[in-house]
Structure formats: structure tokens, C-alpha cells
Design a protein around this nucleic acid. Structure first.
Lengths: 366, 366
DNA sequence: AACCTTTCATGAAAGGTTTCACGAGCGCGG
DNA sequence: CCGCGCTCGTGAAACCTTTCATGAAAGGTT
């Protein structure tokens, strides 16, 4: 069964292939009766224009790639990415643009990128200097960087360092001196310097520790996986090795939630015995028991903004922009009700929010 | 800046375009030194084969479409779909296949399908009779149906009715007589008959009610949204209208979790005052407070199996299959510890499972 | 030296659409 | 009746790659 092409339709309708093309793309150019005849023939034959041929000619396929450096299972297992994709989708949907998730294929990101039939990429978690990204630039493929450094391309980031600083500062101001910091393993190319999201958040923590004149030793910072189990294991291990933190700072909510689970299993009361602050404000954070205090960042908004930037570049070749969105320290119930002092700083405790929306309480980061 | 094509590379390397193609796709055919020269030229120029042109010729683009009838925001907001996509991805990843999420574009599923540059579709939640699906069949595009009825195409379903029956039967056997059933709005084309997943699950409930000679009135079945808030609102509304259910059956975990939240807010103890059983066993179910009893279905596995079927059809044109995977009633702590009687039926209470994996306790559906 | 095989490389067609440039036919003003 | 401009439609090139069929050159055999 050979595919039905524009020629078949043309034959059946008694017109040229060009006329069929016009009937679909620019019906005004043809007499109304002709258009109708063509469309009828197309329907009868079950004709649909071949997207590849169309894309080949028009250099536009109407699909955006969302590029993740991590394997696909990791992506969809992480609520953070779900929200991010939701943000992107809310924008592309109404513009009639498709979404291709691009993850390393058989371990090779290069292969995945080369094979992707897309008009451009939203890249998350990779710096512009990364090898594959550089290759993209050289090829002239438009892209926008999210959560990564960019020199020439547009980028969207959040104030990671400020948010982290606010979280750490709050705990230290409250007198905590034994704080467990949870972070994740850095990709090899970030090892040298503290690049990327992880680096910026750690820098924020460190700055707060320095300002409060509290030592943060290497032992206090543990690296683990960005999963519930990762956070759980890390806290469990710390506890079993006789360390007795009174607070936890995690660079990711999902790890914070894991630590929370471990703490509860050990009979610790949160927040009385242990205060926990995560990062990201994924939907799950508001729904946990107790609801997790965290540094809110506008995840979906990040996706939307990045997509808007990319689409503009695709359309106009508009100007590059480097956008930094704010983060906000969001106090729920994994931290104690604020003291009068911190309250005077504008911090207030929010109630349980049954809709899972943001609590009222927040303090702007920095 | 014109895109660099195979001709440019050929020119620079002093060979024909055909040779360049061979260097990439079948290097054995060329002398090693020639291949190297070509590859060098390609790298210098930043050449990458145009996926559209390649797809046009070879009638293969290496991308699978995952077709959802609901808007993209709904998809990514639902952990069920995340697990499903994870399953699909685990299979396509290693085969070097990309994944395109196909959702209605600007409200039109037809448009989204027509524009999708894919080799085939995994369709979830649509029956083969659906208009757009029929069009696909007519065009000869390969697809596999998940969670939907199929006559000619391959399909993957789970034993919805059996699982639902087991859940309802357990509650009724325990003496519950006031059970609130939560379901979602049916798409218009399912209204006439109880088609689809929702219909099958409701049928399972109804069968158990009939067998236990308990009436299930229309008032006991409430339709709402497949979200936390949906379940929350539905339970709240029922409670406020003075109905006092002692148990909740939900056709979806996320709704069950919403009802759980509402119940706790009203001061009900779960499971002492209210027993709750959901459906799906999304990861969140094991992590809730208390952990949610539910009907487990192998979500990721469904995606994997469907993808395997589709890939086989693409490769061999292999035979069509209709697969039905089992469901299992999975008792956690939103239901009471089993009585001796039900225990003798093989039901046992599982402990909290910190890894969020399935509890040991289960009873095979039916 | 003639002939046969291999090896390495090429020309050209095919894949399906869009669009540029052109033209046939027709109505109408002059 | 000529010529202009409009409407409706067409031919062919272009988009970029893959692959089939072919062939040149080199090496080996008799």
C-alpha cells in the first residue's frame, strides 16, 4: 500500500499538484468550487501532506526540541521536569507547535540532537560551553538555555544563589549550628568550578554560613541522588554515623522530602526536632506531611519564558536576552513558626493550603 | 547563513555527495583515508545530515508519537502519564528512537496528528473507532492502542474491571454500606455506553455491589476532575450535603488522594473512620499519609509493552496482538488491617515501604 | 597481452511538497 | 477591436538525502 501523495489527489481532482497544495495552504487563490473538489478528493483518498517533505521544503517542521542531559527515565520521574514541560506546553500548544523530548539516545546526546527533526531547542541544565551546545551554535540551530550559563544565546535562570542564601540564613539566624546540606553529584564538566544550578545554590548556602560565622565543613555537605531514596539514604546515613543535625538544607525538594521521610521514620518530630528547607517548590512539597518549606522558583514560568524567547528568535531572529527570575523563600510547616524577629523581616507562617497552591507566606530572596 | 549541505562537504573533501553519504552510513564501502577526509571536512563545516531530507527518502524518521486526547498541561500534571512515558522511554531510548508528545494543537487533535513527523503512534485513552484514529488507519500509519478498545490494531489494556471488582468487594465484605464512588467525566463519545477505562472500572464496582446485594444509587457515584482538587471537592461536597460515607472508591489515585486530604481536614481518621481505595498505584500513592490502598496496574510496563508491539509492527509488520495485563489489589494503610476472614483469602497488610515500592501484600484481582 | 574481479567512487533518480514565475482565458474600458 | 488587468491555474525548480546501477582503475590470472 503506497502512501497517497499530492499527485494522487491532483489526478483524482483533475488538477495539478500545485493546485492541491494551494487548496490546503492558500485556498483564496483558487476558485471555491475547485477547492472543494480537491478537498473532497483528498478526504476520499485519506490524503495528508507528508510532514517530512513539507519540512524539507519550508525549513520549518513546527516542532520544538526540549533537550535534557539526563536519561529519559530520570526526566519523567522528576516532578520538576513535569512542571517545566507543562509550562513549555502551555505556550506551544496554542501556537500549534509540537514538543519533542530529546534525551541521550543509547547514551549519546550527540546522536539524539542530530536525529531530532526540530526547529530549535530549549536546553535545560547545560551551559553554552558544553560540547554539544557549541556544535548546535556552529550549525546555526536556534536554542535557548535554561538553568545554565550562556554568553551569546538567550537564557532563563532563577536567582538560585539568593534563594539558597535566604534559606540558609533563616536557619542560621534561628540558631542552628548542625545543618546537613544535601546536594547532588555534579556532572564531570562542572567539577572544576562550581558551575550550574548546584554550584550557585551551594554558593548561596556558603555565603550565609560565612555571614553568620558558622563553619560549613565538607562533611556537612553530602552528595546523593535527586530522588526520594537519595534524600532518605543520605539522612539515614548521617544519622547512623552519629551526626545529629538539627536542620536540613537540600538543593532539591525531592531530596528534602526523602530526608523528611527518613526523619519521621526515626521518630523525629518535624519541625520541632528537625527543620527542613528544600528547593524548587514542586507540587509535592505543598502536599507532604508536614508541608515542606522551600525556596519557590517559578518552574512552569521558566518553561514559558524560554519558549517565548525561542519562538521569537525563530520568527524574527529577535534579540537575545538573559533573564533571571526571582526565587522566594516559602515557609510552610517543616520549619517552625517564625520568631518575632524574623517576623519583623516580613516572614510569616502560612496555613495549610488545600489547593496545593503557594502559601501566602514568603520572603523575597535576598 | 545558509545551512551546510552534503554538497558543501563533498566539495570541500573533493568527492561526490554520494561518497559523503556513504562515509556516514556505510563507511566500509569507502577507503579508510577517504572516509577520514570526508569526516574531517564535515566536522570543519559543522555539517549534520538534514533529518527531514533523510526521513523523506528513507520513510523513517526515528520518532514515535505518543498521542494523548487531553491538553498537554493535563498530561504532564498527572503522575500516571509520567510513569507511562517513562515506560515508553525506557524502551525507545536504547533503540535510539525519539519521543514526540502529541496533544491537541490549538484544540485540534487532527491538526496535531497531521503535523507530527513520526513513524507511528502509541495512542492512549482512545478507542479504535475514534474519528482521528480511524483516519490514521486509513492512511496506513501504524499505531498501538493503550487503554482503549481495538478491533484490528494491537492493543494493551489492563484488567480494569477485575481490579475494580476486587476493591469494591473488599469494602463491601467488610460491611461498608455507604460507599462514595469517585469517577471522572466521560468524553462525549463514551456517554452512550460505558466504554473506556472509566466504564470498565465502574462496571467492576457495580458487579461487586450487585453480588453483595448492596444498592449503588446514582447519587453515590460522583463525577469530578482527575486532580487532587477534584477528589477533595467531591468528598467535601458529599460531606457537606450530610452524606456520611464510611468508605471511598476512586477510579484514580489522584482523586482518592484528594478525598483523603479532604477527610483529614475534616478530622476524620483514616482508616478508622473512613477507608479509601484508589486505582492505578501511582508513585505518590505509596508516599501519602497514610499510604494509599489501591488497585495496582503496571503503568510503565504498559508503555513498554505497547512500544515493543509498535516497534515490531514497524520492523516486521509483525502480527497484531491484544494484550491484557493483570491488576492487583494492593492494601496499604488507608484501609484497615484485614479481618481473619479476608486474611484467609490471601490478604495481608503490608508495612510502610520506604522505597516507595510495592508492598508485599496483595491479592490478585479476581 | 587479454580478460576477469575487486575496490572505490560517481551520476542520477527518487522521495513529496512548496513556490516562483508564468500564462490562458475572460471581462471591460477606451 | 485592441489591450490591460484580473482570476484561476500550471510547470518546474528547489529543498537535501539515499541508493541503485554503473563504471573506472587497479590488481591478478592464464
Amino acid at each position: 500500500m503506497a502512501r497517497v501523495t499530492i499527485h494522487d489527489v491532483a489526478g483524482k481532482a483533475g488538477v495539478s499538484p500545485a493546485a492541491v497544495s494551494h487548496a490546503f495552504n492558500d485556498p483564496e487563490r483558487l476558485r471555491a468550487t475547485t477547492v472543494e473538489r480537491i478537498l473532497d478528493a483528498a478526504r476520499d483518498l485519506g490524503y495528508a501532506p507528508n510532514p517530512h517533505a513539507r519540512a524539507l521544503h519550508s525549513r520549518r517542521v513546527g516542532v520544538l526540541g526540549v533537550l535534557f542531559p539526563q536519561p529519559i527515565a530520570t526526566v519523567f520521574a522528576n516532578p520538576f521536569f513535569a512542571s517545566f514541560l507543562e509550562g513549555i506546553g502551555s505556550f506551544t500548544d496554542e501556537r500549534g507547535i509540537g514538543l519533542l523530548t530529546v534525551t541521550p539516545l543509547g547514551g549519546s546526546l550527540e546522536r539524539a540532537i542530530a536525529a531530532a527533526p526540530v526547529d530549535g531547542f530549549v536546553i535545560i541544565g547545560l551551559d553554552e560551553g558544553h560540547e554539544e551546545v557549541a556544535r548546535l551554535r556552529k550549525r546555526g540551530v536556534p536554542f535557548v538555555i535554561v538553568d545554565g550559563d550562556a554568553e551569546t544565546a538567550s537564557s532563563v535562570n532563577v536567582d538560585d544563589e539568593g534563594g539558597a542564601y535566604a534559606a540558609a540564613d533563616l536557619l542560621l539566624q534561628r540558631g542552628h549550628r548542625k545543618v546537613l546540606v544535601l546536594t547532588f553529584h555534579a556532572p564531570p564538566d562542572e567539577l572544576k568550578k562550581d558551575l550550574g544550578v548546584r554550584g550557585r545554590r551551594l554558593r548561596g548556602y556558603r555565603r550565609a554560613f560565612a555571614k553568620n560565622r558558622v563553619a560549613l565543613t565538607e562533611d556537612d555537605v553530602v552528595r546523593t541522588f535527586v530522588t526520594l531514596d537519595g534524600g532518605d539514604d543520605a539522612f539515614t546515613a548521617a544519622w547512623e554515623s552519629r551526626r545529629r543535625p538539627t536542620a536540613v538544607l537540600a538543593v532539591s525538594d525531592i531530596m528534602a522530602l526523602g530526608a523528611l521521610r527518613a526523619a519521621k521514620r526515626m521518630g523525629l518530630r518535624v519541625p520541632e526536632d528537625l527543620e527542613v528547607i528544600g528547593f524548587d517548590d514542586i507540587p509535592l512539597a505543598a502536599a507532604s506531611q508536614p508541608p515542606l518549606s522551600t525556596v519557590h522558583q517559578p518552574i512552569a514560568e521558566k518553561g514559558r519564558v524560554a519558549t517565548r524567547l525561542l519562538m521569537r528568535e525563530l520568527d524574527d531572529g529577535g534579540p537575545r536576552e538573559r533573564i533571571v527570575l526571582p526565587t522566594e523563600l516559602l515557609l510552610r510547616e517543616s520549619t517552625r513558626a517564625p520568631s518575632a524577629k524574623s517576623n519583623s523581616l516580613g516572614l510569616a507562617k502560612g496555613g495549610i493550603d488545600r489547593a496545593g497552591k503557594r502559601s501566602m507566606a514568603r520572603a523575597a530572596a535576598r
